[in-house]
């Protein structure tokens, strides 16, 4: 049988922020790039995100926050993934995120942070190059 390697990505909005234009545009762009995208909607707790990521066995998680709660919520997701032994999942983040916060987030295990103005094609490429199959 021919093996297929469809990349699966969970796109999630942690926290209470309702601005989902970016998350939805990216979800569509990833789909159009041939990926399976699981979108979980607004107001997700880190626990819900990690549980969904494990059950869906995704290759990557894309988190989007515009409310400024990223320093708390992004690392929390990575921490829970580690606890569940699922830290092989690539975690990327986007939103209104000041440059000075980025090193700290990367140190916490976020693979890359995409700020406003990033073309979706760059995110697609990044995922394709960095997921572990």
């Amino acid at each position: 049988m021919t093996q297929t390697n469809t990349i699966r990505v969970l796109v999630a909005k942690p926290g209470l922020d309702g601005h989902d234009r970016g998350a939805k545009v990216i979800a569509r762009a990833l789909r159009d790039a041939g990926m399976e995208v699981i979108y979980t909607g607004l107001r997700q707790t880190p626990e819900q995100i990690v549980e969904a990521a494990i059950q869906e066995d995704v290759d990557a998680i894309g988190l989007s926050i515009l409310s400024g709660a990223h320093n708390f919520l992004f690392p929390k997701v990575v921490e829970l993934l580690k606890k569940e032994g699922a830290d092989d999942i690539l975690v990327i983040g986007g939103g209104v995120i000041p440059d000075e916060d980025i090193p700290g987030l990367k140190e916490a295990g976020i693979a890359e942070i995409f700020t406003p103005g990033t073309p979706t094609s760059r995110i697609v490429e990044f995922i394709k190059e960095n997921v572990k199959h």
Binding site: T6, R31, D32, A33, G34, M35, V37, I38, Y39, G41
Partner: peptide, 11 residues
């Protein structure tokens, strides 16, 4: 066309 899919039932 693309082989991709949006899976939204979990919501």
């Amino acid at each position: 066309f693309t082989g991709g899919a949006l899976l939204g039932d979990r919501i």
